[in-house]
Write a protein that binds this DNA or RNA. Structure first.
Lengths: 213, 213
DNA sequence: GTCTATACGACGATAGAC
DNA sequence: GTCTATCGTCGTATAGAC
C-alpha cells in the first residue's frame, strides 16, 4: 500500500489534529531531503542518502512520495512558502503606519533570518533553480512570483513615499537586495559572526551602502 | 595514446606559439563543460552532454582530460583565475593615486562584467562550491583566497582612508558585496535590462544603498 | 509502514580500430 | 585525435514479504 499522492486525504492548514506516525516520518524525510539537496544539488541528491539521514531505507520513501521529483518539488515549494510566511509575518507585526523604509528593513531582516534559520529549505538553498527539470522549474517560479510580489509592494510604496530611491526599477532593486541576502547561505560559517550583528550589518548595508555616514 | 595529464609538456603563460588542433578542441571542451556545469550542477553534468556540445563523442574526452573531475577542476580554476585577472586589470588601469572609493567601484564594475560576459566559468557559476567533492572543494577555496585578497586590500585601504565605512569587518563587507553581484547570474535574463545600466545601478547601490540621496 | 530483493537504465571509464 | 564497443557500477523504481 502506498500513500504517495496528495498528502493523505486532503489535509488543510486548519486541521489541527495530532500528527500521525506517517506525518512525522514525512517531516523527517523532507528535512533530510532539504539537507542533501542544499549541498549536493539536484542531480547529486540520492534517495539512499536521504533515507539514511531520515533513518529508513531507500525503498521506503516510495510509501510517502510518488517519486524522487515529487519529493524535491515538495521541499522546494515549502522553502519559498516558509520564507514568504516569515517575511509577511514580520511586516504584519510592525505598528500600523510604520514608515516605508522601516518596512523594507523589516523584510530584509526577516528574509535573512529565514536563510540563517531554515537555510536548507529557504529560498536560498534554492539556487537549485537552474538545475531543476523544466516542470519543477515552472512550479518553483510560480511560487517565487507570489513571494516577489510581497517585496515589490513594499519597495513601490517606499518609492512613492520618497523613502526609497526612485531611479531604479523596483524589480531590479528587489533582485539586488534579495541576492545579497541569499548569498549569505554560501558564506563559510566561520565568516558569519554573531547572528544579530550579521543581520544588523545587512540592514545597514542595504540601507546606506559602503560609504560612511 | 592519451594527452590527459599536464597540458602537454609544461606550457607556460609566456608560450605564445600557435595553438595546435588539440588546444582548440580542449578549449571547446572546457567551454562546453562550463556551460553544462552552470546549469546542471556538479552531479548533473554528464560527459555525453559536454561532448555533444563540443562536437565529439564522450569517449574522446579522455584524450584531453584524465577523468571527469580533472575537467571540472580545470573549469573551476579557470573561472576564478579569469575573474581575478579582469578585476586586477581594471584596478591597474585606474590613474595612479585614484581615491579608494573609486577603486572599490572599479572592482564592483569589473566583477559584475565578468559575471555577465563569462558567467558560465566566472566565480558566479561557482555556487557549485558546496556540490564539489572534498578535494576539488579544497583546491577551489585556495584559488578563491587569492582573489579575496585583492578585494580585501581595496576595502582595507578605503577604510583606513575613511572612504569606506569602518564599522564592519572588511571580509564580511566583501562577502556582502560580491554576493550581491554573484546573484545576478541567477536573475532571469529578462530582468537584466541594458548591460551598462545594470552595472551602473550595481555600483550606485553598493555605494549608497536604497535610500535616496 | 518499512523491509529485502531485483529489474532496469544510465553514466563513467577503458580498449582497440581507424 | 576521434571513433565504436563494451564492462562495471550505481541509482531509481517496483514487487512482495513481514
Amino acid at each position: 500500500m502506498t500513500n504517495a499522492g496528495a498528502t493523505t486525504p486532503a489535509r488543510r492548514r486548519s486541521d489541527r489534529r495530532a500528527p500521525t506516525k506517517s506525518d512525522l516520518t514525512r517531516e523527517r524525510i523532507v528535512a533530510a531531503a532539504a539537507h542533501v539537496l542544499a549541498r549536493r544539488g539536484y542531480a547529486g541528491t540520492k534517495l539512499s542518502d536521504i533515507a539514511e539521514r531520515a533513518g529508513l531505507r531507500a525503498g521506503s520513501l516510495y510509501y510517502h512520495f510518488a517519486d524522487r521529483d515529487a519529493l524535491v518539488d515538495h521541499v522546494v515549494q515549502q522553502g519559498v512558502a516558509e520564507t514568504e510566511r516569515h517575511v509577511v509575518a514580520a511586516l504584519a507585526a510592525l505598528p500600523t503606519g510604520s514608515d516605508p523604509l522601516s518596512r523594507l528593513q523589516a523584510a530584509v531582516r526577516a528574509h535573512l533570518e529565514a536563510i540563517l534559520d531554515i537555510g536548507d529549505v529557504s529560498s536560498a538553498g534554492l539556487q537549485l533553480l537552474r538545475q531543476l527539470p523544466p516542470e519543477l522549474q515552472r512550479r518553483y517560479r510560480a511560487a517565487q512570483r507570489s513571494y516577489g510580489q510581497v517585496w515589490d509592494d513594499v519597495i513601490r510604496a517606499g518609492q512613492t513615499a520618497g523613502a526609497i530611491r526612485s531611479d531604479m526599477d523596483p524589480v531590479r532593486l528587489r533582485l539586488f537586495v534579495i541576492g545579497q541576502l541569499n548569498w549569505v547561505a554560501e558564506w563559510p560559517v566561520s565568516a558569519r559572526g554573531k547572528r544579530a550583528d550579521l543581520v544588523d550589518e545587512a540592514v545597514e548595508l542595504v540601507t546606506h551602502g559602503v560609504v560612511p555616514r
